[in-house]
Design a protein around this nucleic acid. Structure first.
Length: 583
RNA sequence: GCCCACGUAGCUCAGUGGUAGAGCACCUCCUUGGUAAGGAGGAGGUCACCGGUUCAAGCCCGGUCGUGGGCUCCA
């Protein structure tokens, strides 16, 4: 980061990190300081200490920080020769600072910042005085490797945050609370959507009935859209012989992520981490003509990948998941139109799921790559062209492409403003070579090489579902809600009528439950609301007599009675999928 | 994988060496009540798993499994 670019907020946070380091040094003189930058929502500082910090330590550090702030010492910048700085930090025993000094380019000016007795190698800038730190809080402790490299020593990192005033700090902490409430792991349990089990194994998702309903809706909609848009659907096995993975190259560059094989009649079989090799084999089952192009083959393919135990996280990072994968086979002259098609297809579909804020990233040729210069130039040129036409904001990640071709990644922004990468569109020069994939051209020759496009749209159904849960805070739109309405009777006298309403709504295609329990109406409404069911339909004697129900929308006030027929019309309208015709 | 924390009833959690607890949920009964919790009773736990220390372990020690916060933000 260029120090000139540091925002006032980052300056405040970085200064707070210094104050924290000062407090830590006072309480734990043996601690060695390392680095302490401002980050997106606050700051951290890494320390090398014998004993990790505890929660109680955090409180003591916070108190000490407050004392330092109250003292109101000025932050002072001091330029120093490299030798003087080396001597200073060597004498202090700050070996990490000495190491950092060694990695600063020779032509750069060395500066240290002081406040009170504390001194830190730092290019700044800082606020003027510790007094300017008005609102801060230490958040958590965590282990972190020196310079982010796991071969290095594990340091102890303290995360904290700071704001210009207490009100903003409170708002930030409240936002953290809100995010906690929307955490898909919590909602997954509360709404009975999915679970994990020690008996099954880490990172392996169990979809419960209500989660299963949502997944079914996602899949059904996904399949319909694909079929309407010229895709065919493929189904391929979960395992394949090792020779497939040898040919695809996965045994070479992906085996760390693959589960060990199983012996079947003396042959070694492996669980699939990807679907593409299967699609390639289907392609090769017979001669293909350019007249068939573009081929669009999609599969909801369940794959298994080894992920290190520490990175597993709810539905966001799992070991078994279903990719909504697709492979397009095109001629070179069709590449541009096909990219245009698939890009718009992705954007449309994501809109239907409630996202409308997108960012696109083009990743270009990395240092190590396959394919000719001409191929890369052509493909990158086409991607740039289509990105420009998309009307969506986009950036270039130079050299960030996969070795087999350039790609476009699509990020969505959720209701809490967080960005998620789901879709990826990748041009592949490699796989057609490896599998010797060809087609018969206009000239009758069989040795033409098609271009292959890999595409995942939602990415993984598990992860996308987790994102949806958090995006909606568990309150799914009507078309996706696992239960769209609960019909609640006031007394037993309406039980038969409730059952008949349930039958009629179910027959009309809605997901409806009846709550006939011997409970007061208030209790039924409360539970329906807590389950975030879009409509609670109240039925008392008045409604039953008029073939009607009184709807109460989730989070809303009671509404006047509607006849069952009117209700069906209303639900039909409201459960339309954005930008699509109803299923 | 690594650092730290955690794992007690379906859920949320209390219990730090001496016979396992609460609230909610669940079941039964009473109550038939009009828009966010009606009442009473009952059942429910090899304290994650394996091993060790001890007269005695949910609690102490070791291992395993699982969960959470992190390990990309660079003086």
């Amino acid at each position: 980061m260029n120090p000139q670019d540091m925002s006032p907020l980052d300056r405040l946070r970085h200064s707070t990190a210094h104050v924290m380091a000062d407090a830590v040094k006072r309480l734990f003189p043996e601690a060695k300081i390392t680095i302490g930058p401002a980050i997106e929502n606050g700051f951290y500082y890494d320390f090398d200490v014998e004993k990790p910090f505890t929660e109680e330590d955090l409180e003591r550090i916070e108190q000490k920080m407050q004392e330092i702030i109250d003292a109101g010492d000025a932050f002072r910048c001091e330029e120093m020769s490299r030798d003087a700085a080396l001597e200073l930090f060597s004498k202090m025993g700050e070996t990490y600072k000495v190491e950092i000094l060694g990695s600063i380019p020779a032509d750069e000016t060395i500066t240290v910042y002081r406040h009170g007795e504390f001194v830190d190698l730092c290019r700044g800038p800082h606020v003027e005085s510790t007094k300017q730190i008005k609102a801060f809080k230490l958040i958590s402790v965590a282990g972190a490797y020196w310079r982010g490299d796991e071969r290095n020593r594990m340091l102890q990192r303290i995360y904290g945050t700071a704001f210009p005033d207490k009100k903003q700090l409170r708002a930030h902490l409240a936002a953290l609370e809100e995010a906690k409430k929307r955490d898909h792991r919590r909602l997954g349990k509360e709404l009975e959507l999915f679970s994990f089990s020690e008996t099954i194994g880490a990172g392996l998702t169990l979809w419960h009935p209500k989660g299963g309903r949502v997944r079914h809706l996602m899949e059904t909609y996904w399949k319909e859209r694909h079929l309407q848009s010229g895709y065919d659907l493929l189904y391929t096995p979960h395992i394949a012989r090792d020779r497939l993975w040898e040919q695809s190259g996965h045994l070479g560059f992906y085996s760390d992520n693959m589960y060990s094989g199983m012996d079947v009649d003396g042959q070694d079989y492996l669980v699939k981490p990807m679907n593409c090799p299967f699609h390639a084999v289907i392609y090769k089952d017979r001669l293909r003509s350019y007249r068939e192009f573009p081929l669009r083959w999609a599969e909801l393919g369940t794959v298994y990948r080894y992920e290190r135990s520490g990175v597993l996280h709810g539905l966001f990072r799992v070991r078994g998941f279903t990719q909504d994968d697709a492979h397009h086979f095109v001629r070179e002259d069709q590449l541009s139109d096909e990219i245009d098609f698939v890009l718009n297809f992705c954007l449309d579909m994501l809109k239907a799921f409630g996202f409308d804020d997108f960012e696109l990233y083009l990743s270009t040729r990395p240092e190590k790559s396959v394919g000719s210069d001409a191929q890369w130039a052509l493909a990158e040129g086409i991607l740039v062209e289509r990105l420009k036409q998309s009307g969506v904001k986009w950036e270039i990640d130079a050299g960030g492409g996969v070795f087999y071709g350039p790609k476009i990644d699509l990020k969505i922004r959720d209701s809490l403003g967080r960005r998620w990468q789901c879709s990826t569109i990748q041009v592949d020069f490699q796989l057609p070579e490896r599998f010797d994939i060809t087609y018969v051209g206009e000239d009758g020759r069989r040795d033409h090489r098609p271009i292959m496009i890999h595409r995942a749209l939602l990415g993984s159904l598990e992860r996308f579902f987790g994102i949806l849960v958090e995006h909606y805070g568990g309150k799914f739109p009507l078309w996706l809600a696992p239960t769209q309405a609960i019909i609640a009777n006031v007394t037993d006298a309406q039980a038969d009528f409730v059952q008949s309403v349930k039958r009629r709504l179910t027959a009309a295609g809605f997901r409806v439950e009846a709550d006939l329990r011997n409970e007061k109406l208030g209790a039924k409404i409360r539970e329906s609301q807590l389950q975030k069911v879009p409509y609670t339909l109240i039925v008392g004697d008045k409604e039953a007599a008029a073939d009607s129900v009184s709807p109460r929308p989730h989070g809303g006030k009671p509404e006047g009675a509607l006849t069952v027929d009117q209700l069906i019309e209303r639900l039909k309208t409201e459960s339309e999928i954005p930008g699509s015709k109803n299923l």
